[in-house]
Design a protein around this nucleic acid. Structure first.
Length: 292
DNA sequence: CACTTGACCTGTCCGC
DNA sequence: TGCGGACAGGTCAAGT
């Protein structure tokens, strides 16, 4: 579920809420992909450690501990990280929140801090994970060595983007945007939104797209991601930030989940189809398929 | 090798 | 309400 803007929003929240706190207790229940490290590792390097920094690479969160271990976290489709202090009453407007009392049925991991507050890792579908590993080893994990550049870095310009995406010249532009080794952090929502912005049909082959169009596409990727971060991410079904609150980008989406509604640019009816194995939203007028 | 599809899971929604 | 099937924002293994 969460793409780069959602993970970045969670990162910012956790930086405010958990940095400086000391882990007193760890509870893990039914999270098959989590914590492959044995209990001894958790006891030696997680329990008793404090959180010194929360960073992000692509869609992966990195929680650095004072023990020189890092909790590497992937939320995948339905993962949430929600912090709860001691005072739960009055925490936000009810319609802002998707989560009630915690832990709940989907809670997989709980970090209890020495001050009595908690961080809950909830994950309905159990695809997500939290894995402790030595901080120095994090850059060596397969995903980190293969993942592409961060799209919001100023240095990631058209000159950097075009040759990378042209490595996937024989596939569709949507599949190429979703390829994390081309660039980091684009998922299904922002792929559709950026392609609408660039007036490209997601099923267009990369080889049929000009460099000028790819340059526009990169501008649109940066635009939708920056806007989404500003809006606190997109909540379609169950994404929430570290306070348990929804994001509002989805209210600003131009095509995503808007099938049957009007295209905000031309008024045509937005369609839903399947491209690269994913639900795909397009304007049939603004985004004609090119097949040169 | 490049690319596509299926699997991982649970919950929800839609049609009958 | 009940039941079966399709589908859900990510990633990797297996298949073509």
């Amino acid at each position: 579920m969460p793409e780069l803007p959602e993970v970045e929003t969670v990162r910012r929240g956790l930086s405010e809420l958990v940095v400086g706190r000391t882990i007193q207790h760890v509870i893990v229940r039914d999270s098959p992909k989590s914590l492959p490290a044995d209990d001894a590792t958790v006891h030696a390097f997680v329990v008793g450690a404090s959180i010194v920094r929360v960073s992000r690479r692509a869609k992966v969160l990195l929680v650095d501990l004072s023990s020189d271990y890092t909790l590497v976290i992937h939320l995948k489709m339905t993962g949430q990280l929600v912090y709860r202090g001691l005072q739960v009453f009055g925490a936000g407007h009810p319609t802002d929140s998707l989560v009630g009392e915690l832990p709940d049925r989907s809670t997989r991991v709980v970090l209890e801090f020495t001050d009595g507050s908690h961080l809950y890792f909830n994950d309905q579908r159990k695809f997500g994970w939290i894995k402790p590993m030595p901080t120095v080893e994090v850059p060596n994990i397969d995903f980190m060595t293969r993942v592409g550049p961060e799209p919001l870095e100023d240095s990631f310009d058209a000159a950097a983007f075009i040759p990378r995406i042209r490595r996937r010249n024989n596939t569709t532009i949507k599949a190429a945007l979703l390829d994390q080794t081309v660039l980091a952090g684009v998922g299904n929502i922002y792929a559709d939104e950026a392609l609408w912005g660039a007036q490209l049909h997601p099923a267009t082959r990369v080889r049929d797209i000009t460099d000028a169009q790819l340059t526009t596409l990169l501008t649109e990727v940066k635009y939708v991601m920056n806007l989404a971060i500003e809006k606190g991410g997109s909540t379609d079904r169950n994404y929430v930030n570290a306070d348990g609150k929804r994001g509002s980008y989805i209210d600003f989406a131009r095509v995503f989940r808007r099938e049957g509604l009007e295209c905000p640019r031309c008024g045509a009816t937005i369609e839903k189809s399947r491209v690269a194995g994913r639900g795909t939203h397009t304007c049939p007028v603004c985004q004609p398929i090119l097949d040169n």
